[in-house]
């Protein structure tokens, strides 16, 4: 698209272009920089107006405090137990919703029946509802199921509301999977599950990664369900971080807050850096259905 009409003008244009792009890089990186440098300096440097500067005294103490001794809510446990809660919550919820989504996607593309598009539409709409709409009945339901205030309850909630997106991913992926292969396998004598396990599943690697990353990011980052359905012992990381930051008692330890924020961000950030391509694909597939 760049016409090479006038090389001097265009090379000047390129410099401006890169400068603008660079400025935006600074804009996006600035909050991360602020979090990082301030998590490594003593509190006094921050309160003295040095938020933008590099630490003069490098210290790892805020990280240690955030991890194991900071006051979260009523107890001075640090964020560690809540980090573990999040992991215990995320792993089964992601696994379950991905597995169920894969099976749903398979049925909805390769074994369609009258009304299967409507069924899919109804499943999908479930991802977009404001979850405020389900908070009250879900709180009661978890109580009835004996899961109130437990990590297991959160696993269940995230599994339930994760089905829609998982199904979306696998459905769109399997829709592009040649139906002739399924027919060939039928003629060869393979049944419903055999076709899924032997023919489709071995080719589902990429979409499984996309789905797992999406679910992982979403569930790890969730706050609303965590805040609504957990008690002090089962809080996920995001809720604990918010409690740490909002606690009104004592001095505000900004450096500890920043360290905690980075801790809460690290797992998803790590996934993003390692598998960014799949992350972006998931984002796109979640918005532009096709």
């Amino acid at each position: 698209m760049v016409t090479a009409s006038n090389s001097r003008a265009s090379s000047f244009g390129r410099i401006v272009l890169y400068a603008v792009l660079g400025l935006f890089c600074i804009y996006y990186l600035l909050p991360l920089y602020v979090m990082l440098v301030n998590s490594l300096k003593p509190l006094s440097e921050i309160t003295a107006g040095g938020m933008m500067s590099l630490p003069r005294d490098w210290t790892f103490a805020p990280w240690l405090s955030a991890w194991s001794s900071a006051q979260v809510g009523v107890e001075a446990t640090g964020l560690r137990p809540y980090f573990l809660n999040s992991i215990v919550m995320v792993v089964p919820a992601v696994a379950l919703s991905t597995l169920v989504g894969a099976l749903n996607g398979y049925v909805l593309t390769k074994w369609t029946f009258r009304g299967s598009t409507i069924v899919f539409g109804l499943l999908l709409f479930g991802c977009f509802i404001p979850f405020q709409m389900v908070l009250i009945p879900m709180a009661r339901m978890l109580g009835l199921m004996g899961l109130a205030g437990s990590v297991a309850g959160l696993v269940f909630v995230h599994f339930v509301y994760g089905i829609g997106f998982s199904t979306l991913y696998f459905r769109n992926y399997y829709a592009a999977f040649p139906t002739e292969l399924v027919r060939a396998a039928q003629i060869d004598g393979a049944g419903f599950f055999r076709i899924f396990l032997r023919i489709l599943l071995p080719s589902s690697g990429p979409i499984a990664v996309v789905c797992i990353i999406w679910q992982f990011t979403n569930i790890w980052n969730d706050f609303l369900f965590g805040a609504s359905f957990s008690d002090f012992s089962s809080q996920p990381m995001t809720v604990a971080l918010n409690n740490l930051v909002q606690s009104s008692t004592g001095v505000k330890e900004y450096n500890v807050h920043f360290a905690g924020a980075i801790m809460a961000a690290l797992p998803t950030l790590f996934v993003y850096i390692v598998a960014g391509r799949y992350f972006v694909r998931g984002l796109m597939a979640g918005s532009v259905k096709g």
Partner: peptide, 10 residues
């Protein structure tokens, strides 16, 4: 990739 809570704190 970040939680809104992290963004909010920052």
């Amino acid at each position: 990739a970040l939680s809104f809570i992290v963004t909010g704190v920052a």
